[in-house]
Design a protein around this nucleic acid. Structure first.
Lengths: 341, 341
DNA sequence: CTGTTAGCGCATTCAC
DNA sequence: GTGAATGCGCTAACAG
């Protein structure tokens, strides 16, 4: 038992150095393009590293550098429809292999979130993105986190924190402006849970657009769940009470799909008879309905990218936004508001 | 500039030790419940750590231990419907804060996958789970990875690798057995892309069930895309050509939903007139259709948990399965095959 | 019970 | 150009 046992131990820099017949220091320099190393030497080192398939130990490196090239993604609801695109945008922005992402799903539980946060800090992530499941403000992680934190989708309730969230007001306005542009004047609104900021903001935007055109909503906004069932029921109610509506702005694509079903059942032709617009641009729903559904897209992937960029900027001590920044949304027109040719 | 500057540097163990008036080693022992440390001393150390909100550096720890309590999750298609539950199951099994998960999305690109793999190895993950997007075998990462690798959903094409995948054959059989149990005898099959192993395996299972009952499929399986559109079109074709079918086994819930739409349009009553069963148990589709859709659930979250468990076992040198292991699926009965009361 | 010593793998001075 | 020494933060041996 003297020295180098067998048993495929992990290859270290010193192994490479030994094989190349140089010191550890030289090997390090050669591998990192540092200083002046004789060309021949560098070649030898690189060859040795390759032959041993040497993989530098990021932890050892991080210990020295004080930087891990690692960030934490703290979500509260992984299976939620909105997490994934944001997460993808972030992963995207970090670049394959450049920065690695710790994924933590707190399952909407504060205790679990604390555990994960602690783990992340323990692993010395360079920054954290917190992704919430609604656009309602969520509790801040606090100001004493030693790394930059950016909130995505759900803004932080502390105005000192930087938050990115889709502009629901603009979305509501955009939706109704489009309906008006399509010549509709009797517009109703069916949406989900009224306690959601998203629901209220979209309504406010819708009303702003109506006001600007000298119009009013037909009836009051109809609130309940964000489901197809509710969309079906609400549409039946609405079309009975106000047979003259010529457009329905729906608070979600799910609701809109239910509305389309009922319209079909009742023999109302979409879009001629009745224009329908959804919200979220969830492709599974918008492209499978009959006709395909016009909707508002929140650009979530872009939001994720922006969040990642902010984290980077903050790490590099670039000043980033403070408070809530609302990102633009876009209208995606399909056959439920305009007859396509 | 002599010694302790200001500027909230990260707190280290030596800071804690200093504040508690003990040596670094003692502080370490106290914090880790090691050896015998005087109760009073331990208290002082704990207090000091708390006051400074000390967070141990997992990298430094990992450097010593040779274990990072970190695993890599290498997916090829994050937005895919099947990744998320598996990912959740894995995250679940690893426990909040115990083990951290690096998430890497290769976007279906081999190059990017290599980059991510390298990054993971560089970070010295203790193990890797590879999640594929189909149940067709995927290329192995190779045998020279220094940590355990488990393949989930998409099995590895190398029989030496441990793979976990849902049992599609059993799923197909289960679906048809259920239809037969419901008294159906004229059963047809509409499915997606025939090049998918999933499609073929489910058909084989279906045929096995039919054989056992002395029945035959009505017509040939109908192949095309995994979409609602195809479901609608295929159903129209099928019902025209074989008006006497009394049940349709669909290769996916999306297809099934399209089938239900067409059945409705053609005035066929489900389930009395026509029983319909889907596959995947995608709640968004199964619970929103009319009637709600009976389907086969692949227990993906459980599959994720199992994959995580295998990784752990392998890390602890417990022998785990080799080759492809098919996990049981389950039937979820809703109103599209049996009239609910 | 507590402190001293050594070293995990690596990048960085500084001599030679 | 190259190599010996130093230390990142921590834990595991030992010695006191």
């Amino acid at each position: 038992m003297g020295g180098n046992e067998t048993g495929s131990k992990v290859v270290t820099l010193s192994d490479v150095a030994k094989r190349a017949g140089v010191s550890i220091a030289t090997a390090s320099k050669a591998l990192n393009d540092r200083d002046d190393v004789a060309v021949a030497t560098r070649q030898r080192v690189l060859r040795a590293a390759d032959e041993l398939s040497f993989t530098p130990n990021a932890m050892a490196r991080g210990l020295l550098a004080g930087r891990t090239r690692t960030v934490g993604l703290l979500t509260s609801d992984l299976e939620g429809r909105f997490m994934i695109p944001i997460l993808m945008g972030a992963e995207d922005a970090f670049g394959a292999g450049q920065v690695s992402v710790f994924l933590c799903d707190a399952r909407g539980d504060a205790i679990r979130e604390q555990h994960h946060l602690k783990a992340l800090l323990s692993r010395r992530v360079d920054g954290i993105i917190v992704v919430g499941r609604q656009t309602d403000p969520r509790p801040s992680l606090g100001q004493d986190i030693p790394v930059p934190v950016v909130y995505a989708y759900a803004p932080s309730d502390d105005p000192r924190d930087p938050s990115l969230t889709p502009d629901n007001f603009a979305g509501g306005r955009l939706a109704v402006e489009h309906l008006i542009a399509c010549g509709r004047t009797r517009i109703a609104h069916i949406t989900g849970d009224p306690s959601y900021a998203a629901a209220q903001d979209r309504i406010a935007g819708a009303r702003a657009a109506l006001d600007a055109a000298g119009l009013e909503l037909v009836g009051e906004p109809m609130f309940s769940e964000w489901t197809e069932h509710w969309g079906r029921d609400a549409a039946a109610l609405l079309l009975q009470r106000h047979p003259d509506v010529d457009a329905i702005f729906c608070g979600s694509d799910q609701i809109a799909r239910g509305v389309l079903d009922t319209a079909r059942d009742l023999g109302r032709t979409v879009p001629e008879d009745l224009a329908v617009i959804g919200y979220d641009n969830w492709e599974l729903l918008t492209t499978n309905s009959r006709p395909e559904l016009t909707s508002i897209d929140a650009n979530l992937q872009q939001l994720g990218r922006q969040a990642a960029k902010w984290v980077f900027d903050a790490i590099d001590d670039v000043r980033i936004g403070e408070g809530v920044t609302r990102l633009p949304v876009k209208l995606v027109i399909r056959g439920s508001t305009i007859r396509r040719r």
